[in-house]
Nucleic acid binder design. Structure first.
Lengths: 213, 213
DNA sequence: CATCATCTTGACCATACGGTCAGGTTGAGA
DNA sequence: TCTCAACCTGACCGTATGGTCAAGATGATG
């Protein structure tokens, strides 16, 4: 009945352990914030001795940095959909879907990101000033094009983007509040669908991309 | 040339010092989170010795609790406007204005609140389950009435409220990101007006309270 | 099989932090 | 003026935390 465990190669060990650590770290950083998180807690959750964490990540900050970078990467990737969409209904609709799905599947990541930005982005400020600025300008141009083509109302693209970020991430960052208001229960499948639908309907109607009911 | 300082009464001293401490604490908790904040930092910012903080607030947690309670109170108060409004344009419009103003004037408070909720509301969970639940149901009823009266589209009142919270608080909680995207400059008066206008236009249009442009 | 780089970990260390306390100062009240 | 409660604070303490290290275990390489 014993599980025959084949010895792992060194590469596999490294990959496996880094993954364990990063997953545990994301959760703990999300729950407790950078200051409240302890290496011991992360180690326990990862099922490794604390000293082993410091073998892979020399300092708490270096571990945190890796977590945040990963999240930032996913954050940007979620918007690929935006690019080749013919108009706002498809582009923004799909973007809302994608970001809502991230909020649902990876709430911890969203929280770490929110925390990082709230604390004035001590570790990813350089990314904000370069990558995020470029990214934002690119999407603003797309939205402006849709406006020029008469596919939506002339709203300020910048504030529309902020609204998209705010509304979608809210379901992760304030998930606890939402659960409490849902009778201390997590949203069901259909409730998530309703949430997505509400956000899409109000925003797409709000920018004149679909007719008002 | 010496400034003649009249001796303060004991009551004044207490009031004055508590105020100093609470203001400093709000800032430090907002910047660093509960775990990252230190009593020494708060003391320095308040201009008092650390031991004096412990005279007024026995523990770090008790100080934090007071900060969060104050914020929760303001949070609820912002929605009085909602109540006697004849319809969504006035009610929701004024609510957006009020919450945007809070985000502008008291970003630290908003951040502390966000942090508290993100960390599963360790100190105000009871308030969420009682006061906030009641409050939310009351506003949902008002929105539903407006819907029944044909003053707006039949959107889900719950998700509309979430959207209002998300969009307005975003300007405080993610203020740093917004500043970075604004060329590392805080929003000017006119930019704040533009932000308010965008949020109101999109949401009020989105719920069919005002016609699409 | 021998050698080596990589991985593992219990024990340890220095520091920083929340909190305490004793002794002193100062406004309030009689 | 005297007494007392409220206020103040430098010095101190126990603990928890991030980080180190040296000695051992384990897979890779030839």
């Amino acid at each position: 009945m014993t599980q025959e465990t084949r010895p792992l190669s060194k590469k596999d060990i490294r990959r496996e352990n880094e993954k364990l650590i990063l997953e545990a770290a994301e959760k703990v950083f999300a729950e407790a914030g950078f200051g409240g998180a302890t290496m011991q807690l992360i180690a326990d959750l990862a099922g490794l001795p604390k000293a082993n964490l410091h073998y892979y990540f020399p300092t708490k900050e270096s571990l945190y940095r890796r977590v945040v970078q990963t999240i930032f990467h996913d954050w940007l990737k979620a918007a690929d959909i935006f690019d080749n969409a013919p108009g706002p209904v498809e582009g923004i609709g799909a973007y809302i879907d994608a970001k809502m799905e991230i909020s649902r599947r990876h709430p911890a990541g969203s929280k770490v990101w929110a925390s990082e930005v709230m604390h004035r982005a001590p570790v990813i400020q350089d990314y904000l000033e370069t990558t995020l600025v470029e990214w934002t300008e690119g999407r603003m141009a797309i939205i402006q094009r849709w406006i020029d083509e008469g596919k939506m109302n002339p709203v300020d693209p910048r504030h529309l983007l902020y609204m998209l970020w705010a509304t979608t991430q809210h379901y992760a960052d304030f998930g606890h509040q939402i659960e409490t208001l849902n009778g201390n229960a997590p949203l069901s499948d259909s409730q998530w669908e309703a949430a997505k639908g509400s956000v899409k309907t109000i925003i797409l109607t709000g920018i004149g991309a679909i007719p008002s009911a």
